[in-house]
Amino acid sequence: MKEAVRIGPNPASRPDLDEVMSAVALGDQSAFAVLFDAVAAPVLGVAHAVLRDRAQSEEVAQEVLVEVWRTAPRYRPERGTAVNWVLTLAHRRAVDRVRSAQAAAAREHRAGLRDRMREYDEVTEQVEARLEREQVRRCLRTLTEIQREAVELAYYRGMTYRQVAETLSVPLGTVKTRLRDGLIRLRDCLGVCA
């Protein structure tokens, strides 16, 4: 019977990661390289299991490994193995990323609802504009025929004073007087402060 062939390093030659973590806690960069090689793939796996997105999983794995380097002195071997500590950090960071994404989605949803509520404001503005137009029409009816014609030609049809004078066949000075008097009456009728 043939003996099974094992692929990969011999378990007996693997470093004790708890000891490696102690060296990392003292700032040993070569120890961190050993730790990195041992835990990078499992950290990426944990992140991907939670996030299900390759790019985000890689970001989280990178953040976790940087955090391991910075916070290695906090590792307590009596609470568990170094691998478990690192994988717990990875799981927590991935869950935080999911929660952050959910919170962002909730914020966007609330912002969308606020935008939708603006439709109410648009309706209010439309009603107010309609009421204002009606009030202007009512006030225009209080002008004399000559004043109303001059105001309508100048302000609703966009004619110049000279064009209004030519259309009404009256002198330019008369048009200016009619417009001035008509606008004063409109101002008083609309209750606009001068």
Rank of each mutant, 00 (worst) to 15 (best):
L44N: 12
T142A: 11
R157P: 01
S57P: 10
R138T: 14
V170Y: 04
E58N: 01
E132D: 09
R157Y: 10
Y161T: 10
A150C: 10
P73K: 00
V43A: 09
L168S: 08
V95W: 04
A41M: 08
I146W: 12
P11V: 08
H109A: 13
P42D: 03
Y155R: 11
N84Q: 11
R76Y: 00
A111V: 07
D37E: 15
D16I: 04
P9H: 00
D28A: 09
L26Q: 09
Y156I: 00
M159F: 14
S57Y: 09
C139P: 02
R180S: 14
P15K: 03
A61M: 05
D188S: 10
A129H: 07
A105G: 00
A129L: 14
R133W: 02
T88A: 15
A104K: 14
A105D: 09
K2A: 14
A101Y: 00
V175Y: 10
E125H: 08
V170G: 07
W69G: 02
T177G: 04
T167D: 10
A38P: 06
A82I: 01
R157A: 08
V127T: 01
A165W: 05
H109T: 13
D181G: 00
D181L: 14
C139L: 07
L87W: 05
E152C: 02
D181F: 04
R76C: 08
K176R: 15
A31E: 04
A12F: 14
V95A: 04
L183A: 07
Q147R: 03
S57C: 06
V34Y: 04
L153N: 00
M117D: 10
T124D: 11
T142W: 01
V5G: 01
M159H: 13
